[in-house]
């Protein structure tokens, strides 16, 4: 059973993906085509990218509800800066702005000692307000057509968002599993006081995690803005739910300490498959919200059952 759980933690999401694929292949003749599959993966890139950051946050025992608001802020800054500074500089500065929100989150959480949930809930409202103020409460059209290449272009037949996602995936994978920082994040998540006693700078690690989450939200904001060519202050409402769902469905435990970057990537693709399926059924857009919420509850249920089982095994004195 323990072996099964370990396997599930690593590969459980593939069961969902395979079942989903079989279902969609039967339901839609177009599903098994390269274009459709690339399209589904491309739609999953935002969830995956922000999910990578969220995976770090949840692994460290934290949580970030402000990601959707950060995407909106990035979008507004891009639309205002591109005409003035040109595309590359505008992107860099927008990403810096996004990351600085993470810095503020981290500072409030560590230095003022405020609960991460409350901090990021408050920051979500604050950042939405700031984005709307900066944009003057409207959407801003970007006239620079070149900018759309990031979200809609192709490189060697593969959509550029997918390439960005893969690059970030490789970076996150090595940071999580093959760098001291990744180990420190896990240590903080599994036992904060032990990490502190053994000399880790817990506050610094937490701050860096929140900067990383906000940065990934910024990247997602850049891609999304590039696809619409509009600066949208209220971009992607409810996206924090998608990012959290993707992370937990992917096998990262809410208890902290164990992150699963692979799982996050494929869970994002799975959510994208659900959206594709819902589109086939031609149902109202609200079903998307309903389905993601339901998937989250199911994923949490599995996570909870797994932790309970492991607890009971540990209580019997077996090393896990």
């Amino acid at each position: 059973m323990i072996k099964f759980l370990k396997l599930y933690e690593r590969f459980g999401i593939f069961i969902f993906i395979i079942l989903g694929s079989i279902f969609l292949a039967i339901a839609s003749p177009n599903f098994l085509q390269t274009n459709t599959i690339l399209n589904i993966i491309a739609q999953g890139t935002y969830g995956a990218i922000v999910g990578f950051g969220m995976t770090f946050a949840i692994t460290s025992g934290g949580f970030d509800l402000s990601v959707a608001a950060v995407m909106g802020l990035t979008s507004v800054f891009l639309s205002l800066l591109i005409p003035v500074l040109g595309i590359p500089l505008a992107i860099i500065i927008s990403l810096l702005v996004a990351s600085s929100v993470g810095l503020v989150n981290g500072l409030i959480i560590t230095k003022l000692n405020v609960n991460p949930l409350i901090t990021t809930l408050a920051m979500m409202t604050i950042i939405r307000g700031v984005s709307l103020l900066v944009a003057g409460g409207r959407q801003i059209v970007i006239s620079e057509k070149m900018f759309s290449i990031i979200g809609t272009g192709f490189l060697a037949g593969i959509p550029i968002p997918i390439i960005i996602m893969v690059v970030l995936f490789i970076f996150m994978f090595f940071t999580m599993y093959h760098s001291p920082f990744g180990r420190h994040v896990s240590a903080v998540g599994s036992n904060e006081s032990a990490a502190r006693i053994s000399g880790l700078n817990v506050d610094l690690i937490k701050i860096m995690v929140f900067v990383l989450v906000a940065f990934t939200a910024g990247v997602a904001g850049v891609i999304r803005t590039s696809q619409t060519l509009i600066g949208i202050p209220t971009m992607s409402p409810g996206f924090e739910l998608v990012a959290i769902t993707v992370t937990i469905l992917g096998g990262t435990s809410l208890a902290g300490g164990r992150g699963n970057i692979w799982g996050t990537l494929f869970a994002a693709i799975f959510i994208s498959m659900i959206y594709y399926g819902l589109n086939l059924l031609n149902v109202q857009i609200f079903f998307q919200m309903l389905s993601v919420g339901t998937v989250l509850i199911i994923a949490l249920f599995i996570d909870g059952a797994r932790n309970r089982y492991l607890e009971s095994v540990r209580a019997k004195g077996i090393k896990v």
Partner: peptide, 17 residues
């Protein structure tokens, strides 16, 4: 035994939907 804040986060979207 799901933590309250995340259960109710899921419910937030389910009820609204």
């Amino acid at each position: 035994r799901i933590p309250a804040f995340i259960t109710t986060l899921g419910m937030l979207y389910i009820f609204r939907a």
